[in-house]
């Protein structure tokens, strides 16, 4: 395994507070919520595991320095339970298989299987939306999720999927300095900024 300090991007002389801060920032960045139903979810999970291990290792080395591992445990377990929990509620066998296929990234088979289902209920539209989302077909995903929520307004899973899409760029992670309120910019400053881009001399 790599040097745990370089994984977290801090120097070995960093204070406990700095280590914790770096860990939190990375955990926020690679948090599974940012990669739900994303084709890169497994890469994010890998990263998350790496930083969890690095943080655990450092806290163990510095025994007595703060609470160890509490943070990491919280992150991974909450994710697992919500994700699995949602999926195990699938009553229909075919739907369960489709979910497995989507998770594995085999979208063609999932789609084929889905079209064999005759009765289109809320879950059908939800799964159809999940396949579209995974493919990057955001407009279709949005339409299908909306349909699913309309048909079963009380299903939290569907509502959450739709809510994530409605957030647009507002959700998810952004590095410090890029979280600026772009929406607050009025028309004039838009012109100004893009003019800066085009004109001007040496920096």
């Amino acid at each position: 395994m790599n040097d745990p300090y370089s994984v977290l991007g801090v120097s070995p002389n960093a204070s406990d507070e700095e280590v914790k801060k770096a860990y939190r920032e990375l955990a926020r960045k690679y948090h599974p919520d940012n990669y739900q139903n994303n084709p890169l979810a497994d890469l994010a999970e890998e990263k998350m595991k790496e930083i969890n291990e690095a943080y655990d290792q450092i806290t163990k080395q510095r025994a007595g320095g703060g609470s160890s591992g509490g943070y990491s445990g919280g992150y991974s377990s909450s994710y697992q339970s919500s994700y699995q929990g949602g999926y195990s509620s699938a009553s229909n066998q075919t739907y369960a298989r489709i979910r497995t296929l989507i998770n594995a990234g085999d979208l063609d088979s999932a789609e084929r299987l889905l079209y064999e289902v005759n009765q289109k209920d809320g879950e059908w539209y939800f799964l159809s939306g999940s396949i579209a989302y995974r493919k990057g077909w955001m407009d279709e995903a949005m339409q299908n999720y909306t349909r699913a929520v309309q048909m079963e307004p009380n299903n939290m899973e569907y509502r959450q999927a739709l809510a994530v899409m409605q957030r647009g760029t507002a959700g998810g992670y952004r590095p410090a300095g890029y979280s600026s309120g772009m929406d607050a910019m009025d028309c004039c400053s838009t012109m100004l900024c893009l003019n800066c881009l085009c004109g001007g001399g040496n920096c």
Binding site: L43, M142, M165, G168, T169, Y173
Partner: peptide, 18 residues
Amino acid sequence: LALTMDQSLAQMGAALQL
């Protein structure tokens, strides 16, 4: 349209970080 384009921007950001 802006929302669906924002969703692509969000996916780009998520990919960039990895």
